[in-house]
C-alpha cells in the first residue's frame, strides 16, 4: 500500500533515516520498532510531509507523496496520530468526535459515531467532559477515535502506548486490532516491542536509520539479534 524507496530524511540538517527502503502491505497491522533515535518517528513524519526529506520516494498506491502538504496527504485517506497534542484538550469529548468527522459525508456521521462508541465504549460515558481531563488511556483512545472518524484507509500511530500502564496499553492495542478487523491498514511505531508483537501482524525493526529486520510478528519475537540490537551489545 505504501512503498518507501531509498528514503533519506530528518530534521533541519540532521539526516536520521539513511537510504531506507520498505513497504507496508494493504490491510495489515504493521509495527515499526527500534530503539530511540533509530528513525521510527522520522519515518512517520516523512510520510506525512512534516519534516525534511533529502532524497528518495514515498508512494501511496503508486502515487508520490513527497512534496505534498500535510493536509493534502491526510485528504488521501491517511490519518496520523502524533505522540502528543493529538486531541483538542480544551473541547469536550463529544466535540472532539464531531470534529473528527469533518471528512465524512453528513449521512454517514450518525452511524460512524455509533460505531466509534462501540469500539471505544469509554468515550460515550465521557461525552460532555473536557477532553483535557481524560486519563492517559482514554486520551489515547480519543486520539485514535478522532483519526478513525476521518474515514481513513491507512492510520499511522506514533507510540500510542507511551507512558501507559501495561494493562491500559493492552486495551489500546486491542482496539487497534479491532480497527484492523474493520478494514483499516495500520502502521504503529513502538518502542516496547514484545507487547505490540502479540497484536500486530508484521514488524520492521530500524537501527541507526536503516532497516535491521523485517518479518512476521512471530519471527520477530524469536529473533535474538533484534533483542541485542536494542541494547547495542553483541
Amino acid at each position: 500500500m505504501i512503498t518507501v524507496q531509498n528514503l533519506t530524511a530528518g530534521y533541519g540538517k540532521l539526516e536520521i533515516l539513511q537510504d531506507l527502503s520498505l513497504s507496508f502491505a494493504h490491510g495489515q497491522f504493521s509495527a515499526v520498532l527500534g530503539p530511540n533515535g533509530s528513525g521510527k518517528s522520522t519515518l512517520m513524519k516523512a510520510i506525512m510531509g512534516l519534516n525534511t526529506v533529502f532524497g528518495g520516494a514515498i508512494a501511496l498506491n503508486g502515487r508520490e507523496l513527497i512534496g505534498s502538504a500535510t493536509e493534502a496527504i491526510s485528504a488521501l485517506g491517511i490519518a496520523y496520530v502524533p505522540q502528543r497534542e493529538n486531541i483538542f484538550d480544551e473541547l469536550t469529548v463529544r466535540e472532539n468526535l464531531q470534529l473528527g468527522m469533518r471528512r465524512r459525508p453528513r449521512e454517514q456521521r450518525a452511524s460512524a459515531l455509533q460505531e466509534t462508541l462501540e469500539i471505544f465504549p469509554i468515550l460515550g460515558r465521557r461525552g460532555s467532559q473536557r477532553a483535557g481531563l481524560l486519563s492517559g488511556g482514554e486520551h489515547q483512545m480519543l486520539a485514535i477515535a478522532i483519526a478513525w472518524l476521518g474515514a481513513p484507509t491507512l492510520m499511522l500511530l506514533d507510540e500510542p502506548s507511551a507512558g501507559l500502564a501495561p494493562a491500559v496499553a493492552t486495551d489500546v492495542f486491542r482496539s487497534l486490532q479491532d480497527l484492523r478487523g474493520r478494514g483499516i491498514t495500520l502502521i504503529v511505531v513502538e518502542q516496547n516491542a514484545r507487547r505490540i508483537l502479540r497484536y500486530c501482524d508484521y514488524a520492521f525493526v530500524l537501527r541507526e536509520g536503516r532497516l535491521a529486520f523485517e518479518g512476521s510478528a512471530e519471527a520477530c519475537l524469536q529473533d535474538e539479534e533484534t533483542i541485542k540490537g536494542y541494547l547495542g551489545v553483541h
Partner: peptide, 9 residues
C-alpha cells in the same frame, strides 16, 4: 530488567 524495558515485557 533493562533488556525487558527496552524490548518489552
Amino acid at each position: 530488567t533493562v533488556r525487558e524495558v527496552y524490548f518489552g515485557d
